[in-house]
């Protein structure tokens, strides 16, 4: 019953850690979605240079580990810009920039999944491309985009664990504290794995629910 004892004894660390993990993931998702929306429109645009820049950005982010990206932002802001960034802020910036690339792809494929006949019908009625996007394409794309964004949230909850490597006080960091103060290596790992799982599993279920809701309203 060592595990339960540890969980009870260090509950404040765990609760604080969970808060930070969820906040980091949530706000990164919000910022990432905003940036990702812009990136996806650039990527779908006909203007070649913008398309190239956003494509390059997306490929670069997706092709490098988040752990490296976080370290780059945290240590890079100090080394290059002489900025002493708060650890949480540094992680928030890195995770948001990372998430933006994935969300851009989610939005792009959501938009492209809408039948091309919808675009043609709308344009043939004389609507402009932005009116078509706003009133015809996006409302339909959202049905695919929202559940995928939910899954991205779940992914972020897991991946933000690397923020602990720059000292962000997230759930993973709480687990490390518990390990060192209780002189036990294994049990805290079981606990932290279980906690991550409970969070992501219940979130996934929520996403599933949302997905069914959206497909019903067809």
């Amino acid at each position: 019953m060592k595990i339960l004892e540890l969980l009870v004894e260090y509950r404040y660390y765990y609760i604080e850690g969970i808060k930070i993990t969820i906040m980091l993931s949530f706000f990164s998702l919000i910022i990432g979605t905003t940036l990702g929306g812009i990136l996806s429109l650039l990527r779908l645009s006909k203007f070649k240079p913008l398309k190239a820049v956003s494509t390059a950005y997306i490929e670069l982010i997706r092709g490098t580990p988040m752990m490296v990206q976080i370290a780059l932002v945290f240590f890079g802001s100090y080394a290059l810009l002489d900025l002493d960034l708060d650890r949480f802020i540094a992680a928030l910036i890195a995770v948001s920039l990372n998430s933006a690339a994935y969300v851009a792809e989610i939005i792009r494929s959501g938009i492209q999944s809408v039948d091309k006949g919808q675009w043609e019908a709308s344009r043939s009625l004389g609507l402009s491309s932005s009116q078509t996007m706003r009133h015809v394409i996006l409302p339909q794309a959202v049905k695919n985009i929202l559940p995928a964004l939910g899954n991205e949230f779940v992914t972020l909850i897991k991946e933000t664990a690397v923020a602990s490597t720059i000292g962000v006080l997230d759930l993973m960091h709480a687990s490390k504290i518990v390990q060192s103060s209780s002189y036990t290596a294994f049990d805290p790992l079981v606990i932290v794995a279980a906690l991550y799982f409970v969070i992501t599993f219940s979130l996934s279920k929520l996403v599933g629910l949302l997905e069914r809701r959206l497909s019903h309203s067809d």
């Binding site: 919808q118 043609e120 019908a121 043939s124 009625l125 004389g126 409302p139 067809d218």
Partner: peptide
């Protein structure tokens, strides 16, 4: 072109009604 298209109606084989 948007203005010109307003004067041209197009009917497609697969209707392309807006499902939402």
């Amino acid at each position: 072109i948007d203005k010109i298209r307003q004067n041209i109606g197009m009917v497609f084989q697969h209707f392309n009604l807006f499902p939402h």
